[in-house]
Amino acid sequence: MSDTRAITQTVRYRERLRVPWWFWLPGLGLAALIAAEVNMGVEGLPDWVPYAVLLPVAAATLMWAGRMEVRVVQNGNGPDGAVELWAGPAHLPVSVISRSAEVPRSAKSAALGRQLDPAAYVLHKAWVGPMVLVVLDDPDDPTPYWLVSCRHPDRVLAALRS
């Protein structure tokens, strides 16, 4: 007989890095402007076609830009469950994290500029202010650290440390 116990997953923190609501105004406005230009430039095309094509494309682009998610999950039951940090498609067990800290908005340009190690894993969204820095201690992984955008770094760090 095989063992088919279900493994539970507890989400300690979850955040989707959506674009702010005010990005939608210029995004859809630009699509409408381009649709109006196409209407003026292409004769014989029904007036509604450029709008029917470009407005959904703009909306899909904005939704695609905000699709990434940051989450901290615990796999398994009880305190012995493995905790992982997920940043977009990548995940990292908390057991390989040696240090973690918040990177405030004011230090973000320095962290992503000359100080950035090319081997680091970066999940950066320009519309999200602060970031979390997670330093790794894994001899099998060449990645020295992760830089991950998140709106509430204190909550991410608390979920990683608890």
Score class of each variant (00 low, 15 high):
residue 1 M to T: 06
residue 1 M to F: 08
residue 1 M to Q: 12
residue 2 S to T: 12
residue 2 S to K: 08
residue 3 D to F: 02
residue 3 D to I: 01
residue 3 D to Q: 05
residue 3 D to G: 06
residue 3 D to V: 03
residue 5 R to I: 02
residue 5 R to G: 11
residue 5 R to P: 00
residue 5 R to E: 05
residue 6 A to Q: 06
residue 6 A to W: 00
residue 6 A to E: 06
residue 6 A to T: 09
residue 7 I to E: 06
residue 8 T to N: 01
residue 8 T to I: 02
residue 8 T to Y: 00
residue 8 T to Q: 03
residue 10 T to W: 01
residue 11 V to G: 01
residue 11 V to H: 01
residue 11 V to W: 03
residue 12 R to Q: 06
residue 13 Y to W: 07
residue 14 R to Q: 15
residue 14 R to P: 01
residue 14 R to M: 11
residue 15 E to R: 01
residue 15 E to N: 07
residue 15 E to S: 10
residue 16 R to H: 12
residue 16 R to E: 13
residue 16 R to G: 03
residue 16 R to P: 03
residue 16 R to K: 15
residue 18 R to H: 11
residue 18 R to L: 08
residue 19 V to P: 03
residue 19 V to H: 07
residue 19 V to M: 15
residue 20 P to V: 06
residue 20 P to C: 07
residue 20 P to H: 07
residue 20 P to D: 10
residue 21 W to D: 12
residue 21 W to I: 05
residue 21 W to K: 04
residue 21 W to F: 04
residue 22 W to I: 01
residue 22 W to V: 01
residue 22 W to H: 14
residue 22 W to D: 12
residue 22 W to Y: 13
residue 22 W to L: 05
residue 23 F to I: 00
residue 23 F to C: 10
residue 23 F to S: 12
residue 24 W to D: 09
residue 24 W to N: 06
residue 24 W to M: 13
residue 24 W to A: 14
residue 25 L to M: 13
residue 25 L to V: 14
residue 25 L to W: 14
residue 25 L to I: 15
residue 25 L to E: 06
residue 26 P to A: 04
residue 26 P to E: 12
residue 26 P to C: 11
residue 26 P to Y: 11
residue 27 G to V: 00
residue 28 L to C: 09
residue 28 L to F: 09
residue 28 L to D: 09
residue 29 G to R: 08
residue 29 G to F: 14
residue 29 G to W: 15
residue 29 G to K: 09
residue 29 G to N: 07
residue 29 G to Q: 10
residue 30 L to D: 08
residue 31 A to Q: 13
residue 32 A to F: 11
residue 32 A to M: 09
residue 32 A to T: 00
residue 32 A to Y: 11
residue 33 L to T: 06
residue 33 L to N: 07
residue 33 L to R: 04
residue 33 L to Y: 12
residue 33 L to A: 15
residue 33 L to I: 00
residue 33 L to D: 07
residue 34 I to G: 09
residue 34 I to V: 14
residue 35 A to Q: 09
residue 35 A to T: 02
residue 35 A to E: 10
residue 35 A to Y: 10
residue 36 A to Q: 14
residue 36 A to C: 05
residue 37 E to G: 13
residue 37 E to M: 11
residue 37 E to R: 04
residue 38 V to E: 10
residue 38 V to S: 07
residue 38 V to G: 05
residue 38 V to I: 15
residue 39 N to K: 09
residue 40 M to H: 12
residue 40 M to W: 07
